[in-house]
Structure formats: C-alpha cells, structure tokens
Nucleic acid binder design. Structure first.
Length: 139
DNA sequence: GCCAACGTTGGC
DNA sequence: GCCAACGTTGGC
C-alpha cells in the first residue's frame, strides 16, 4: 500500500463535501500539473491518503481511500489530464496542523514542507505513522 | 493582501 | 533548446 496526500482549498472542495459523498466518493478532478497527475497514475485501489486543507486552515483533517484508478478528467476534453476517485474513510480525532508538521523533525522531509504547492503528493510510511499518531487515528 | 516559489508558455 | 514573461498557488 502506498500513502498519499490530497491538498484542497476548503472553499473549492472541503472535507465536509467529501464526507457528504459517502462511499460513492468523488473524482479528484481539476489537477493541471504533470507531477500531480503522474502520482495519480501510480495510485491503486485501496491506497490511502491524507486530506489537507490549504490556505486558511492549513491542517490535515481526514483520511481518504482511492476507489478508482486514473481515468480521464471529466472536467476537460484535454486528454492529457486524468484523475482518480477517492472516498472519505474518516476524520482525524485531532487535525494535524502545518505548524505541528513543521515542528516535528520526523516530518521535516515531507513534500508538504518541501514543496507546498504540489496538490497531490506521496507520503512516506513513517510519515504516515507519525501523523496518524499525532491525529489520534491509530495508524 | 503581499510576495516568493514554481510551472508553463511562447518568441527567438 | 533556451529563457524571459506570465499566471497560479499558498504561506505568511
């Protein structure tokens, strides 16, 4: 299993909206960046990811699961762009803030810290474990 | 609201 | 193929 991080501006697409879609999930569409797209093409059904709120909140709020592998992005006719479908698994008991992440040496190498603009990112196994611990998700 | 960082585009 | 110009993102 590979772990990921999905970043969204809550005013565009929020965790609450994701949760409201239930098990049907939702396309992670609108990505127009090759690096982010390439990561989505690597995803497998069952992979898990963090759901991060950028801008105002700046915190990881929940865990999602990939439920469909990369397919054409329905919001464009441009065949370069693909997306996966994800569903909400559950919220973190306590959201993990960017401040907390930056303050933890074990997380210093996270892509979120190194390249905050990338909207879909890989998360290393140990980073996943640390954030689950901080967020009270048990792993 | 500002600005730095980054990615993309297009002229040469 | 280089690089300047531009647009976008996101932390502060």
């Amino acid at each position: 299993m590979t772990y990921w991080l999905f970043k969204s501006e809550p005013s565009t697409w929020s965790w609450d909206q994701q949760v409201a879609r239930g098990d049907a999930g939702e396309e992670w569409d609108g990505v127009r960046n090759y690096q982010a797209r390439n990561f989505m093409q690597e995803m497998k059904v069952g992979d898990r990811g963090f759901f991060y709120h950028s801008q105002k909140d700046k915190e990881i709020v929940g865990i999602v699961e990939v439920i469909a592998e990369a397919h054409p992005d329905s919001t464009t006719d441009d065949e370069r762009w693909e997306c996966v479908d994800i569903k909400a698994v559950g919220p973190l008991k306590s959201p993990v803030s960017l401040e907390q992440i930056k303050g933890d040496t074990r997380l210093a190498e996270m892509v979120l810290v190194k390249n905050s603009r990338l909207s879909v990112q890989p998360v290393r196994d140990h980073e996943w474990a640390v954030i689950c611990e901080l967020g009270g998700a048990g792993g």
